[in-house]
Design a protein around this nucleic acid. Sequence first.
DNA 1: GTGATATATTCAACAAGTTGAATATATCAC
DNA 2: GTGATATATTCAACTTGTTGAATATATCAC
Lengths: 180, 180
Amino acid sequence: MLGLLNYGSMTGYELDKAFKESLSFFWQAQTSQIYRELAAMERKGWVNSEQVIQNEKPNKRVYTITGSGKEELKSWLCTSEADIDDAMRVRSAFLMRVFFAGEMENGEALSMLRKYREACVGQSEAFGAVPESIAQYGALVDNEDQIKYWKVVALFGEISYRAGLEWVNRAIALLEGECK
Amino acid sequence: MLGLLNYGSMTGYELDKAFKESLSFFWQAQTSQIYRELAAMERKGWVNSEQVIQNEKPNKRVYTITGSGKEELKSWLCTSEADIDDAMRVRSAFLMRVFFAGEMENGEALSMLRKYREACVGQSEAFGAVPESIAQYGALVDNEDQIKYWKVVALFGEISYRAGLEWVNRAIALLEGECK
DNA sequence: GTGATATATTCAACAAGTTGAATATATCAC
DNA sequence: GTGATATATTCAACTTGTTGAATATATCAC
């Protein structure tokens, strides 16, 4: 949220949309969590807020990052040490299910993997829209550096989608081979 | 834990080791959480436990899956519907950092990516030991079906490690290219 | 005999994330 | 005028996961 507010002041509603539309690929947050954390961040002095009266829409509260918030953001960005391990860590109930799939019917396991394949294909279609989306937001932010990193993150998405597809195809082939 | 106890009765300590040695690739759990959840599962009737007195070691409590626990396990294995989306979901503070890396020095961002690359290489070495490890545990469990799925999960690990390496190399190349 | 390692478990406090409903106003299409 | 959609926020209850210490016994190497 500090990262987003660093681009410009926003309401909780706008932050929520940003999480749901743009950041959802690598981070998800509930609406209720966003407002709760905004309040916590204001208590910590990382953000300020101001009520804005509107005629045509419900009133809103606009949050602005403070100097202390910017410091916090930068220090968080640089604490890579410990979190690289964290980055490598997978936590997947789906893989857990595959691991214990010996308890299922072979057909059920295959149908699970086929659903995964469909989901991969769906992701692929979703990624088609990413470059335009980056271009649009990039125009608003007007910071060449940012856009560069956004593209690097998008590239991760593409590569890992393709890897997922490769895996599921090989997995299905393996299981179908044994089935017959 | 039900999946593991389905292979055979175990103590919390053994479950903890299984998580740390074998399942840690796709699920992590703290020791304290394992014991807490064992107690919760016993309250739900999914497991039974029995105290075993030992001479050479501290006494232990052995947990055994019940009929109701086996049902629960099977029904969990088959609830793939909703969780496929969940499986596709990435949640990575590391990618978040890359996304906002425009706020860092270019050199700092590069050093973060190089650490990621090192971690990938480390993973690769760890994966070398997996096939032997599967063979060893497989001999104990004596269930061909299980082993098949274990290998499929290991394949996921290999493929996603390689994908991670491909990504980080391309990302570094991109950023270094702009640097000069 | 001392420190390291392995076995084996417990617990309190905290942090983070989820669920699901409630509230309120305005616009637009049918 | 009704239902859908968008704007905008709040809150209680709950579940899950983390931290970090505490306790206890036994073996093995130096």
